[in-house]
């Protein structure tokens, strides 16, 4: 294939647009894994669940997926609370039991996927919004609204979370909870409560990201697995424990995938994220921004 300037620029732009969405997809893992040290590999399953919820709301009520997502995010928050409670009482309370808690989340991932298959089958579902087929064109560069709208809302959400975690008391206690739970306790903060709320917040972001997902691409139940590599690649690449890191990781992944899809074909793009993840794990497990 001939590499032309407009092909390159278009690949770059769609990579950046994709990156915004990827930030929203991974920010929850950034919180759960990076800050709380809870290895929630079921996170992508909640994203797919969010996509299906948005799909149902659109089919039944004609609601816009992104509006649905924010309206229903409290429900995902509560779901997160429940899961954290189970996790806490079954594993964390007893200290180091990472093997079983990993298996627990893997089981949740699998159950969610199978329940979705049982209810919706394995067909792809898609939501067509009023802006889905509109594309702005600036010169030779395409800006499909299907990507631009999720990009903008994602960016707002991720930045909002960034400021929330760095500027508020609660946010800072989340950043401290994995490092020094005792110090928090001395300040009168219950570490378990902090972790619980932060984890619930991470699941709420998964629900919202799911709505973006179904605007961007058709969704089927097993899609969650493809996103596991993606979210962990982004989190590990960016370095654990910071939302800016997550955004950097998302940018790298988004652009790399977009270039791969443009020049080698879209069927190779899953290999990019997983390949980058393996490379990151092998050579720089502390992340690009890590020490």
């Amino acid at each position: 294939m001939e590499v032309t300037a407009d092909l390159l620029v278009n690949a770059l732009i769609s990579g950046i647009l994709l990156a915004g969405f990827y930030a929203a997809v991974s920010v929850g893992i950034g919180i759960a894994f990076g800050m709380l040290d809870v290895v929630n590999i079921a996170h992508p399953a909640f994203i797919v669940l969010g996509a299906y919820v948005a799909y149902i709301a659109h089919e039944m009520l004609g609601a816009d997926p992104i509006v649905t997502a924010f309206v229903l995010s409290p429900a995902f928050f509560v779901l997160g609370l429940v899961i954290y409670r189970i996790y806490y009482y079954a594993f964390e309370r007893h200290g180091q039991e990472s093997l079983r808690s990993l298996a627990f989340f893997f089981g949740i991932l699998f159950i969610t996927e199978v329940v979705l298959i049982l209810s919706f089958g394995v067909d792809y579902r898609l939501v067509n919004t009023s802006y889905s087929s509109t594309t702005w064109r600036v010169g030779f560069v395409d800006f499909p609204l299907r990507l631009v709208v999720p990009f903008a809302v994602s960016l707002a959400m991720t930045l909002g979370l960034h400021f929330y975690f760095t500027r508020t008391f609660f946010g800072r206690s989340v950043l401290a909870v994995a490092q020094d739970p005792l110090a928090l306790q001395l300040m009168g903060v219950n570490p378990r409560r902090v972790k619980e709320l932060a984890f619930a917040l991470s699941i709420a972001t998964a629900g919202v990201a799911g709505a973006f997902l179904i605007v961007i691409q058709p969704v089927q139940p097993a899609l969650g697995r493809v996103f596991i590599g993606l979210v962990f690649a982004i989190t590990v690449l960016g370095g654990l424990g910071s939302i800016t890191g997550t955004m950097v990781g998302a940018a790298i992944l988004g652009i790399a995938e977009s270039f791969t899809a443009t020049f080698f074909g879209p069927s190779w793009s899953p290999a990019v994220s997983f390949g980058l993840l393996l490379a990151a794990l092998a050579f720089k497990p502390t992340g690009l921004l890590g020490r």
């Binding site: 069927s267 190779w268 290999a271 997983f274």
Partner: peptide, 21 residues
């Protein structure tokens, strides 16, 4: 150990992609 677990998942998808292609 967590990273090993995630890497095995990732490896699974990479190999799948290879076979599909």
């Amino acid at each position: 150990g967590v990273f090993f677990a995630i890497a095995t998942l990732a490896m699974s998808e990479v190999l799948y992609t290879f076979v599909v292609n």
